[in-house]
Design a protein around this nucleic acid. Structure first.
Length: 479
DNA sequence: TGAAATGTTGGGGCG
DNA sequence: ACGCCCCAACATTTC
């Protein structure tokens, strides 16, 4: 029998072999498969930040190895996606292109244009669902519109999810008669150099195998304490799956199925697993919002916030970025982010609240910094969570909900383990002063080797004053 | 998936 | 013994 024309499988944010419908469909066709990753330079599609590029470098290497293990390879190209794909079609004689869907406005527009152009060329472009439990258009309110509030969204979305059987990875892929050119991965220089600030990223293992390792360890050991431990940044109570999810090294259907089977075999209680899966629900909800409101990426959902009196404060912004605000829990979070490419979720809320409400800096500035420094940077999650904290989002926290960084630290970092880990210069302070060094008396500071304003900054704003200022700014907004 | 201000209650010290 | 006051402790409301 004829092996037929090759199928191009275009990998994007789905860097895995298992439960990958676009790849599975290509493999089942029995035709030659050409796996491709394009470092896309299409305008309107946001380019990954520096930390994401670090991850991408390792993840692509892993995907290349995993493809080699099933007799295939990964073709690497740079450029505008449409142009690259046309070139590949011409070079290989492929008559079909498969991909898994993305949901941000720029990608949707790009993919639509590519599908139209390919159809004109007689190439079948097929898109699949791989990254979400529900497609954003499948979940609708009684009135038929998109949801704007999480709780009713999740109730409706959850009810649609039955028993899931994730797809197995293909065992063998057919090679084309001739492979198209591929660029060497090192030539992309995704790993930072001069300086290489990624020394602290060693805890991560990008790639599909690393993702499964995280998931199974979490389900075997940590998930049963999830409800309580997930909010404690000093504990390892969260799954840390976020970067793996962001790159699609593992998909939500696989996590869903594995979590339910952990309940079934008695390894975890139903309630704890529900709390964990609810976080997947937030991810779904954010993608739902992004799809239905693509402008959410740059514009306030609540347009009243267009008139918000944000302060221009480059110096303050820089102190926040570097973890030099003088509030230990804020500084600990920002330093964890810089050092490891990741920050505990509870602390993300605290530092975001601090930037937006204590410093009155536009949420887009914080969003941009997170985008550049997080290995798990995901457009939907990043943008929606920042708008949620700022109060400008759809189902946002009310603006008057202002975190007190000291109270938050006392509640969630009781023993100060987290702060001591990331702000070592104050680690010798006693517990009752560690989270607010400015309240310590002279002898206590001296004994701990702390000189406020020299070895550790004095608080850059007073909490009570900043709170009053933020409430006043909000008052201006509502009239 | 807050915090602070304000209001209420009830136990106990004390004249 | 009794009432007054103080002030935790908790509840409610306000931002």
């Amino acid at each position: 029998m004829s092996i037929g024309a090759p199928v191009i499988v275009w990998f994007r944010q789905d860097l895995r072999l298992a439960d990958n419908p676009s790849l599975a469909a290509a493999a089942e066709s029995g035709r030659p498969v050409i796996p491709v990753y394009i470092l896309d330079q299409t305008s309107g599609v946001r380019t990954p930040g520096a930390a994401s590029l670090w991850w991408l470098d390792k993840s692509l290497a892993a995907l290349g190895r995993d493809l080699a293990a099933v007799g295939s390879r990964l073709i690497l190209r740079r450029g505008e996606a449409l142009a690259v794909l046309q070139d590949l079609v011409q070079a290989t004689g492929a008559d079909a292109i498969h991909w898994n869907r993305l949901y941000d406005g720029g990608s949707v527009e790009r993919d639509k244009a590519i599908k139209a152009r390919m159809t004109d060329l007689g190439v079948a472009a097929r898109s699949f669902s791989a990254s979400l439990l529900n497609e954003p258009w499948e979940v609708a309110t009684g009135a038929g519109g998109p949801f704007k509030v999480f709780t009713p969204y999740w109730r409706a979305a959850r009810a649609r999810i039955g028993h899931l059987e994730p797809l197995a990875a293909p065992k063998r892929l057919t090679s084309p008669a001739a492979w198209p050119d591929s660029e060497p991965l090192p030539a992309w220089r995704l790993h930072p150099s001069a300086p290489d600030w990624s020394a602290g990223f060693g805890d991560w293992r990008p790639g599909e195998a690393g993702a499964w390792d995280r998931l199974t360890r979490f389900l075997d050991a940590a998930v049963d304490g999830y409800g309580e431990a997930r909010d404690l940044p000093g504990a390892r109570g969260t799954s840390r799956l976020s970067p793996h999810l962001a790159f699609g090294e593992i998909g939500p259907r696989q996590i869903w199925a594995a979590a339910h089977s952990a309940v079934a075999r008695g390894a975890a209680s139903e309630g704890q697993v529900e709390a964990f899966l609810r976080e997947l629900g937030w991810r779904e909800f954010n993608h739902h919002l992004l799809f239905h409101q693509p402008r959410i990426v740059t514009e306030n959902v609540n347009r009243a916030f267009d008139a918000f009196p944000w302060r221009s404060d480059p110096e303050g912004l820089e102190r926040w970025r570097r973890g030099q605000t003088g509030y230990p829990i804020v500084d600990a979070g920002m330093r964890e982010l810089w050092a490891t490419g990741w920050m505990h979720n509870r602390v993300r809320m605290i530092v975001a609240s601090f930037l937006v409400k204590h410093l009155l800096v536009d949420w887009r500035e914080g969003e941009a910094w997170f985008w550049d420094t997080l290995v798990d940077a995901d457009l939907a999650n990043n943008v929606c969570n920042w708008q949620w904290v700022a109060g400008s989002g759809a189902d946002a926290a009310p603006y008057f909900r202002i975190f007190n960084p000291v109270l938050q630290a006392e509640r969630f970092d009781v023993d100060g383990v987290y702060v001591r880990r990331w702000v070592p210069e104050i680690a010798n302070l006693p517990a009752r002063r560690l989270l607010q060094p400015w309240a310590a008396d002279g002898p206590t500071l001296a004994k701990a080797g702390v000189v406020l304003g020299r070895t550790y900054p004095a608080p850059m704003v007073d909490h009570a004053l900043a709170r009053a200022r933020a409430l006043k700014a909000y008052e201006e907004l509502t009239g």
